[in-house]
């Protein structure tokens, strides 16, 4: 059977990213619809094989050493994999690798590309992509009819569990002939200490409802359990309970995480200005009339002092 869908694992070192499984889950459905196999391209040879049971074929990109990254090197590797497998659809995420390679590979292979995709389907001869435009203010339905189509998918669009099935994929080794004029030098882990709340995928945010700095520990524990930074409304910063870089809002940072979990924040306009674009806002506030519920997707009026420990418990804190 021919390979019809190729998923790129954006693993540079360590585990496969969550997005890879999301794509594998969706990819296997698409592959079925297209009547072909699902392949996953993986950098290097030293990767956790057993986790990739969702795919039928693993394409090992030899020469793409783990632990360092350069776009042209990866581009050459993935291009070789595409050339070797001739899939109908190539799936990547809108992470750094996907943003790097989507456009250039589509151009190289003369295929069509859809970016910021949140859903995919097969419609006769065409691949139908639903994509976000204008920061999610619009959705576009795009039909791709090239013989090879590319999609870069927003992480979180598909359930990852669908891609975690067990299986025993074949392993094929892809040799990269091309010599890209680039050197992958190093991977630098973030310095611990200075927080950048704007870069976090999720924030636990706390407002004056917390009462005093002593109680801050409670939410800190939850944030630690979730491995995400703590952010806050201005009164918390003003009181000196948290340093300034943690402030969200008009006079603080504008954040746009996938999840914004707020506790004891009323939702003053100055605060909303900083976080209303978060993908999902979950608000906890004992006042059912608090304006934060206007922008939140989910809300609860349970007391934060009851809720937070329960949540911490659920995330192994």
């Amino acid at each position: 059977m021919a390979i019809s869908v190729l998923v790129l694992s954006e693993r540079i070192a360590g585990e496969h990213p969550e997005a890879t499984f999301e794509l594998l889950g969706k990819g296997s459905k698409l592959a079925k619809q297209l009547g072909g196999e699902l392949a996953v391209a993986v950098a290097g040879t030293d990767y956790p094989v057993q986790e990739l049971g969702g795919a039928d074929v693993i394409l090992e990109l030899a020469g793409l050493e783990a632990g360092a990254y350069a776009a042209p090197i990866w581009e050459a590797g993935v291009a070789a994999a595409i050339a070797a497998s001739s899939p109908r659809v190539v799936l990547m995420s809108t992470g750094t690798v996907g943003l790097d390679l989507g456009g250039s590979l589509a151009t190289r292979f003369g295929g069509q590309l859809a970016s910021y995709v949140i859903d995919l389907d097969v419609d006769g001869e065409e691949i139908l992509a639903t994509a976000q435009l204008y920061g999610g203010k619009m959705l576009a339905e795009v039909a791709l009819d090239s013989f090879i189509c590319f999609a870069t998918v927003i992480p979180g669009s598909f359930p990852a569990d669908d891609g975690r099935s067990t299986g025993s994929p074949r392993v094929e080794r892809i040799e990269v002939g091309e010599k890209p004029k680039a050197v992958a030098m190093a991977i630098r882990e973030p310095e611990t200490g200075g927080v950048d709340i704007t870069a976090a995928p999720m924030l636990v945010s706390v407002g004056r409802g917390i009462g005093s700095s002593d109680n801050l520990e409670l939410v800190q524990e939850l944030a630690d359990a979730l491995k995400v930074p703590l952010s806050a409304s201005r009164p918390v910063i003003d009181s000196g309970w948290l340093p300034k870089p943690h402030q969200v809002g008009k006079s603080g940072k504008k954040v746009k995480p996938s999840i914004y979990l707020s506790f004891g924040i009323s939702g003053a306009p100055e605060h909303l200005e900083g976080m209303r674009n978060a993908e999902m806002i979950i608000a906890c506030n004992t006042d059912p009339g608090a304006p934060i519920f206007e922008v939140a997707h989910f809300g609860t009026t349970v007391d934060l002092f009851d809720l937070v420990p329960e949540l911490t418990e659920r995330f192994g804190g």
């Binding site: 003003d238 402030q247 006079s251």
Partner: peptide, 11 residues
């Protein structure tokens, strides 16, 4: 708030 202070950090 005057003189544009309302647009500046006052922490």
């Amino acid at each position: 708030a005057g003189g544009g202070r309302i647009w500046m950090d006052d922490s």
